[in-house]
Design a protein around this nucleic acid. Structure first.
Length: 378
DNA sequence: TCTGGGGTCCTAGGACCC
DNA sequence: TCTGGGGTCCTAGGACCC
C-alpha cells in the first residue's frame, strides 16, 4: 500500500518476499489480460495497468459470463481478480470494491458478493444498504482532500454523497464531484472510452539510487530520459513541439538545502527525433543545477504532442523536423538486439550509471526475456 | 540509511483581442 | 469628467486517478 519498506519492522520484513518495481513484467501481464477480455466482449476500455471497463449491454447471462471470465483470467495468467457490475462507471468501480472487500474482509459486505458483485441487479433498497456501508473516501473520484472536506460537512458514506443537495456539491467541490454524485445515482456521465485518446504529454523521470553530486552525471541522466521519452513518442506515432526538464534534491533530507529547478523550451520543430530532443535537453541543462548540491531525482517531459498529419505544415518545408527513417532504423536495431544496443554518446554509455535506480530485488522478466526463463534440470 | 512513476481535468486570474 | 461588453489564450495551482 505504498509504505516505504524501511518503515516495516524487521520481524515482518523477514516473512515477506520483497520485489523492486518491474513495469515491463506488469505491462506484459496486463496486455495478456486485455487480450482475454477483448476476445470475450466487443467493447473494452483499458483504464489502467490492472483495470478494465467492459460494456455488458445486451449480454444475456452476464453473471455467468463474468464468473467464467474471472476464472479464465486467473487460470490463463495466474492473476487473481474481481469483477464489479454497475449501471455507471462509478457504480461499477464501487461494485468492484465491494467484490474485493467481501472476499478479503469478512463482514464488510455480504459474503455473496465475494469475487463478483452485481450492483445493477440489486433492488433500490438493497443498493441503499451497500452504499450506506461504503465510506465516502472509497468512492472513485473522492481522494484524501475531498474525503476530509466531505466528512467535515457530515457526509461520511457513498449514500450520503448520493443524496446530498446537488447545488451544494457543485458549489463547494465543482463539476467533477457533481458528476460523481450523479453517477452514484445511476445517471451515466462518463462514456466507455474504448478508443484510447492520444497522450497530451509524455514524462520520463527517475529517483536516483543515491544522491548524485556529479552534475555531469545528472545531465547524462536527463539526456537518457529524453531518448527514452522519444522512444515512447515514436511508439505512439506522435511528435512533440516542446520539452521540459526538472531536477530535485533529496526532499526527505531535512538538513540539505533544497533546490527543485525546472525549465522548458520549444524544439526546433515538431519532432520525435532523439537527437534534436537530446540536444535541446543538453542546452537546457547548462547552468541548471546549483554548485555543490546533490540531486536525488530528475526527469524530462515532452509537451504539445500531435500526430504528424494534424500539423500545420511550413509553406516551403516539411511539417516535422528530424530524420524519421533514421529513428526507425535505431528502433529496429534496439528491438532486435535489446534496448541500448545503439544510441547517443551523450547518454553516458556506462553499464551501471551512478544515477541508476536501486533495483536489487528485481524479479526476472519471466514473460518477456528467454534469458530469464527458469531452467529445469533433470 | 531507506521514501515511485506516470497521467488527467478543472478553475481562477491575468494578458490580450475587438 | 466620463471609461463597456464581450471574447480567447495561457499559466499556475489544486484536485483527482492508477
Amino acid at each position: 500500500m505504498g509504505q516505504p519498506i524501511h518503515q516495516v519492522p524487521a520481524a515482518i520484513r523477514r516473512q515477506l518476499v520483497i520485489r523492486s518495481a518491474n513495469f515491463t513484467l506488469y505491462g506484459d501481464l496486463s496486455a495478456r489480460i486485455n487480450t482475454i477480455l477483448r476476445a470475450a466482449v466487443p467493447r473494452v476500455e483499458s483504464y489502467s495497468i490492472d483495470e478494465c471497463f467492459l460494456d455488458l449491454d445486451g449480454i444475456r447471462d452476464r453473471e455467468a459470463l463474468v464468473w467464467e471470465l474471472r476464472a479464465r483470467v486467473e487460470r490463463w495468467t495466474g492473476i487473481p481478480n474481481g469483477i464489479g457490475i454497475g449501471s455507471t462507471k462509478t457504480l461499477a468501480k464501487l461494485a468492484n470494491h465491494v467484490a474485493k472487500s467481501a472476499q478479503r474482509k469478512p463482514g464488510s459486505y455480504p459474503d455473496a458478493y465475494a469475487g463478483v458483485a452485481d450492483l445493477a441487479s440489486l433492488s433500490p433498497a438493497v443498493l441503499v444498504d451497500v452504499l450506506a456501508a461504503t465510506p465516502v473516501g472509497e468512492v472513485w473520484g473522492v481522494g484524501r482532500r475531498w474525503s476530509d472536506k466531505l466528512q467535515a460537512q457530515g457526509i461520511h458514506t457513498a449514500l450520503q454523497l448520493r443524496d446530498a443537495p446537488r447545488g451544494q456539491v457543485l458549489q463547494d467541490f465543482g463539476v467533477t464531484l457533481a458528476r460523481t454524485q450523479r453517477e452514484l445515482a445511476g445517471l451515466a456521465c462518463m462514456g466507455l472510452e474504448d478508443v484510447e485518446p492520444d497522450r497530451q504529454q509524455i514524462m520520463v523521470s527517475r529517483s536516483f539510487g543515491a544522491r548524485v553530486y556529479d552534475h555531469d552525471a545528472v545531465r547524462e541522466a536527463l539526456v537518457s530520459f529524453a531518448v527514452r521519452a522519444c522512444e515512447k513518442l515514436r511508439q505512439r506515432n506522435l511528435v512533440a513541439s516542446a520539452v521540459g526538464i526538472f531536477a530535485s534534491t533529496d526532499a526527505f533530507d531535512r538538513e540539505a538545502i533544497q533546490h527543485h529547478p525546472q525549465r522548458a523550451a520549444n524544439l526546433p520543430g515538431a519532432t520525435s527525433d532523439s537527437r534534436l530532443v537530446a540536444a535541446t535537453v543538453a542546452q537546457l541543462s547548462r547552468r541548471f543545477l546549483k554548485q555543490g548540491l546533490a540531486y536525488k531525482k530528475a526527469g524530462v517531459w515532452l509537451m504539445d504532442l500531435a500526430r504528424p498529419v494534424d500539423l500545420q505544415p511550413e509553406l516551403f518545408g516539411p511539417a516535422t523536423a528530424g530524420n524519421e527513417r533514421l529513428m526507425e532504423v535505431v528502433d529496429a536495431i534496439n528491438r532486435r538486439h535489446g534496448r541500448g544496443a545503439i544510441g547517443l554518446g551523450a547518454t553516458g554509455w556506462q553499464s551501471t550509471p551512478h544515477w541508476g535506480m536501486r533495483q536489487e530485488h528485481l524479479s526476472p522478466r519471466f514473460t518477456t526475456a528467454f534469458s530469464d526463463l527458469p531452467v529445469a534440470y533433470c
